[in-house]
Design a protein around this nucleic acid. Structure first.
Lengths: 208, 208
DNA sequence: CGAGCAGGTTACCAGGCGGTAACATACGGT
DNA sequence: ACCGTATGTTACCGCCTGGTAACCTGCTCG
């Protein structure tokens, strides 16, 4: 009945955990390590060791390495989509939407699990690729619709612009997380900068 | 003395090639296949088979899989940098520079070898990651300097904007290569669209 | 013509990895 | 107290893959 000191990784206590607790712990450890080393850079044995557990325990909770990775990825994707959509739906002011969505990307990229998504482009698994592309497509669809509405563009053009904005936000966010230390530039300021860039750029397509 | 029918891949003729010819052929085949399947998705044996040759021949020309891949990647990176720099140095009109650079990204992304670069984010190899990041840093530096000059921004801000523009161009270009079929949108038009977005966005930072 | 060498092949090895069968042990209910 | 079951371990397998040693062959040139 006591919490029994759940150990993060490679800790000593070594107590038995309930199935649910163990599963949760494994998901957390796996998320971090896969994000850091990539799918091929991490073996199930390494993962088990890091979690302070033996390999078969992993297979008690997940049917295969691939499925474990995919599950983690889907989760990260869902998290990202949710944050973006929240930013888009939280207001009716398009300027605020742009800024909110960019901020959402920045927040998400700070989470190391975001690497699971970016790393997935390695074409390795078609399912992984598809999952990411589907998510991108859906958000581009949402953004594109807003753009199309107020600029009178066709779907193709709107999709292109939406994708361009996603690229702008993600790459800038990734750069920022790697360079905020040496480039005294706080997140809020960076987000404001990019919003300005994006918003003014979009302005050139305004219908009215 | 005759050309002896160099065979692209898995062809029947099976004639001996000179070391140089063979090396060149292997580089071409490897470039295509690595781009398509990724580093981990292609074995040396598969590669050898595809080239119509046995495995040791590969090792006669390249010391290891890793080095072969890295060499191909470095080559792709050099190609990309060269095209971008050409676009930036070809004119003094900044508007034309933006459009030229975006067009260069579009051209480059159409080359399937570009996948070698994007796929390299899989953190697999630190050297691969570093090579890509260095290239990105160098072009961001070049672009950032132009931006900084005409907008009076500090290095950090200029770097952020430059990175954002790179993200905009690459992601849009990748999207376009995947969707040009279903979204009747020709390249020139797409490039013009994105240039407009980028240029107007940059306008908000103009000094004067 | 015949020998030497560049170009190419077969067959193999060692190590790592995903995955599993068989066995061991802590813990809660009665 | 004790037993059943959920939890966990040791030890192993088979396969694939990067890489190599040993051997073959046909073109070229004296």
């Amino acid at each position: 009945m006591e919490p029994r000191a759940v150990v993060g990784r490679a800790g000593e206590p070594r107590t038995r955990l309930s199935a649910q607790e163990r599963r949760q712990q494994l998901l957390e450890v796996a998320g971090g390590l896969f994000a850091e080393h990539g799918f091929h850079g991490l073996s199930m044995e390494q993962l088990a060791d890091a979690a302070g557990v033996s390999k078969p325990v992993l297979y008690q909770h997940f049917p295969s390495k691939r499925e474990l990775y995919l599950a983690l990825m889907q989760d990260a994707i869902a998290e990202m989509e949710s944050q973006i959509r929240k930013a888009l739906e939280g207001t009716r002011d398009n300027r605020a939407r742009v800024e909110g969505a960019i901020a959402a990307y920045f927040d998400f990229v700070e989470d190391r699990r975001s690497r699971l998504i970016f790393g997935a482009y390695e074409a390795a698994d078609p399912d992984a690729r598809d999952a990411v592309e589907e998510a991108n497509r859906r958000t581009a669809e949402a953004v594109g619709q807003l753009i199309a509405e107020d600029a009178g563009l066709d779907r193709a053009a709107a999709g292109l612009l939406a994708t361009a904005l996603r690229g702008l936000a993600t790459e800038a966010a990734r750069w920022w997380t790697d360079h905020d230390a040496d480039a005294g530039l706080d997140k809020a300021k960076a987000v404001r900068f990019l919003s300005r860039l994006a918003w003014r750029g979009l302005g050139s397509f305004q219908k009215d």
